[in-house]
Design a protein around this nucleic acid. Structure first.
Length: 272
DNA sequence: AGCGGAACCTGTCGGC
DNA sequence: TGCCGACAGGTTCCGC
């Protein structure tokens, strides 16, 4: 499911509802997300902890507890956090329940079991976080930075946008939408883009991601906010999932192609 | 160093 | 109706 705007939507929801709350107990229904940690160990280490803060880094959610303990969560394709009143029976894809004070449950739900929940003691020592590239909405995303990233790469620009070690947070939907906005073909080799085009890629990236956050993310099938409401950005997509439909800019049919085993959608006429 | 491809899981949808 | 393949918002590992 979720790319940066969806994770940001979830984090903002959790900040309002679970920050400052105590985890009274934890129940693991399936250990895939917490493996290789043992469920009992996971449950024990979190019981009695207070959630000091919930933040986002790229597509990761970071829950901070008392000094030196963090829960690093990744939703992958179908992971969800849902905050609800106490419930008696887990639903089919509920993987972990976090019981909070004031009779609230934070549910980790994940149909495909790709999502991960990892306990870490330091953010700076965590390899997964250390290897991430710049935040696309930060001032670190600049033309010189992009130039350096692509200088010795033969990859196409679509794949570069998806490379989390360079820019961290863009996924398959927004990569297509960004390149449509920038009027650049996903097939272009990154290292052949001129400075002016890199500037357009950056501007479009920030424009699309900011708007998507304002619309609470994109719900095509699975993504839901923590109260199970959908996002609204799916109503503003220009090309993703729109194969054969007329380009909103020039009316030529949108094409679907496969790059690096994933769908790309673009207009072969107005994206050069 | 960096690339492509397979793997991890479960579900849905379309074609035959 | 049932079976089969393609496809799904992501990352990681392995071999070249």
């Amino acid at each position: 499911m979720p790319e940066l705007p969806e994770v940001e939507t979830v984090v903002r929801g959790l900040q309002e509802t679970v920050t400052g709350r105590e985890i009274t107990s934890v129940k693991v229904f399936r250990d895939t997300p917490i493996a290789p940690l043992n469920p009992k160990t996971f449950e024990k280490r979190l019981a009695g902890r207070s959630i000091q803060s919930v933040t986002r880094r790229a597509k990761y959610l970071v829950f901070q507890f008392d000094p030196g303990l963090y829960l690093l969560a990744h939703l992958r394709m179908t992971g969800k956090f849902i905050v609800s009143p106490l419930i008696s029976k887990p639903e089919k894809h509920h993987r972990v329940w976090f019981f909070l004070d004031k009779d609230i449950v934070m549910v980790f739900d994940d149909m495909r079991c790709f999502g991960t929940l990892e306990l870490i003691e330091s953010l700076t020592d965590c390899n997964k976080l250390r290897l991430l590239g710049v935040e696309p909405l930060s001032s670190s995303l600049t033309v010189p930075y992009l130039k350096k990233c692509i200088a010795h790469s033969s990859s196409n620009i679509k794949n570069l946008l998806l490379n989390q070690t360079k820019i961290a947070g863009i996924g398959n939907i927004y990569a297509s939408e960004i390149l449509f906005d920038a009027q650049i073909s996903p097939l272009r080799q990154g290292c052949q883009l001129k400075a002016k085009e890199l500037r357009k890629v950056i501007d479009s990236t920030q424009k699309i991601l900011t708007t998507a956050i304002q619309k609470n993310g994109t719900s095509i099938s699975d993504f839901r906010r923590i109260d199970e409401q959908t996002g609204e950005f799916q109503n503003f997509l220009n090309v993703y999932g729109k194969a054969e439909q007329p380009c909103p800019r020039c009316s030529v049919p949108i094409q679907r192609i496969v790059q690096q085993q994933r769908s790309s959608f673009y207009c072969a006429s107005c994206q050069q």
